[in-house]
């Protein structure tokens, strides 16, 4: 059985691609055969985040239009076995992602024995975003503690509940998970930022994880190595916990409580 996970948000810049890359890598590191697909036709970036931009020969649209087969287009990841990247097309227009075409590619991935397919959705609620969530079994809704992101997440939840195949066919609904990213425990503690519980109350879907705001994310993208590989950083640990929870393990939330720095730390700085 292949599980299709769509990483979505409505709003741009909240961390969808970072999350797609890290979730896919984390699942692969745990031994699951995983593919991660960039649905952002025309604005592909997953290849950069995954560090495979120079190995792109064929893309998603090539496969849909029959110019290449899936085997030729899938790029094997350098950092995790069992992980393959399917990049988006940089040139063609978004309508090239037909529903039938996407379905065919997903079916072929299932046929090839993939355990998970992670769909990295583009921002917005246009065709690309809708087709990315159409076939989802699971949706990870990436939300920043910020008003526009929360509102857009609610909007995308409405679209999942009306336009996904599961909804249209009246099957068991898409499993929705909330992932709060760019979280600052201090600012939440000081009442300057929505807390993750505020966001969960507003969106009313189960919380899968909280990823703290961190410099490590930029360092990861600079190098083209998914953030989950940044050993011993809170971001990597938080993504690992998130994957554990997704797989049914119990992990208490970390990096969400603000600890007042001690006097020495305040005097001498340090991380």
């Amino acid at each position: 059985m292949t599980t299709i996970i769509t990483v979505t948000s409505g709003k741009g810049g909240v961390g969808k691609t970072t999350t797609s890359a890290s979730i896919a890598s984390g699942l692969a590191l745990r031994g699951f055969k995983t593919a991660v697909i960039d649905f952002d036709v025309g604005l592909r970036n997953l290849d950069l985040i995954m560090g495979c931009e120079r190995r792109v020969v064929y893309d998603f649209v090539n496969v849909i239009q029959g110019d290449a087969n899936l085997h030729q287009a899938l790029i094997k990841d350098k950092h995790a076995d069992n992980l393959f990247v399917l990049p988006a097309s940089q040139t063609r227009d978004k309508d090239a992602l037909t529903e039938e075409g996407v379905e065919k590619v997903l079916q072929e991935l299932a046929h090839q024995g993939f355990d998970y397919v992670v769909c990295d959705s583009p921002a917005g609620i246009e065709h690309g975003a809708v087709v990315a969530l159409t076939f989802a079994d699971v949706a990870i809704v990436v939300t920043n503690p910020e008003v526009s992101s929360v509102r857009d997440s609610d909007r995308i939840l409405g679209i999942i509940q009306s336009k996904s195949r599961r909804a249209i066919e009246g099957r068991e609904p898409v499993q929705e998970h909330l992932l709060v990213t760019r979280y600052s425990p201090k600012r939440a503690h000081d009442g300057e930022m929505l807390t993750y519980t505020d966001i969960q109350e507003l969106l009313r879907i189960p919380l899968l994880g909280v990823i703290p705001e961190s410099e490590a994310v930029l360092q990861a993208s600079n190098q083209g190595i998914p953030a989950i590989h940044q050993k011993d950083t809170p971001v990597a640990d938080a993504y690992q916990d998130t994957i554990g929870r997704f797989l049914g393990e119990a992990h208490p939330l970390r990096f969400v409580e603000y600890e007042k720095p001690g006097l020495i730390k305040r005097l001498f700085g340090g991380k």
């Binding site: 910020e146 929360v150 409405g158 009442g191």
Partner: peptide, 25 residues
């Protein structure tokens, strides 16, 4: 002193989300 504006954000979101859910869904 930075203002504790998160509660304002939450109240505004509660209203607008309820409103949009009602009209859109």
């Amino acid at each position: 002193e930075k203002k504790a504006t998160a509660s304002v954000a939450k109240e505004r979101l509660q209203l607008i989300i309820a409103h949009e859910r009602a009209s859109l869904s």
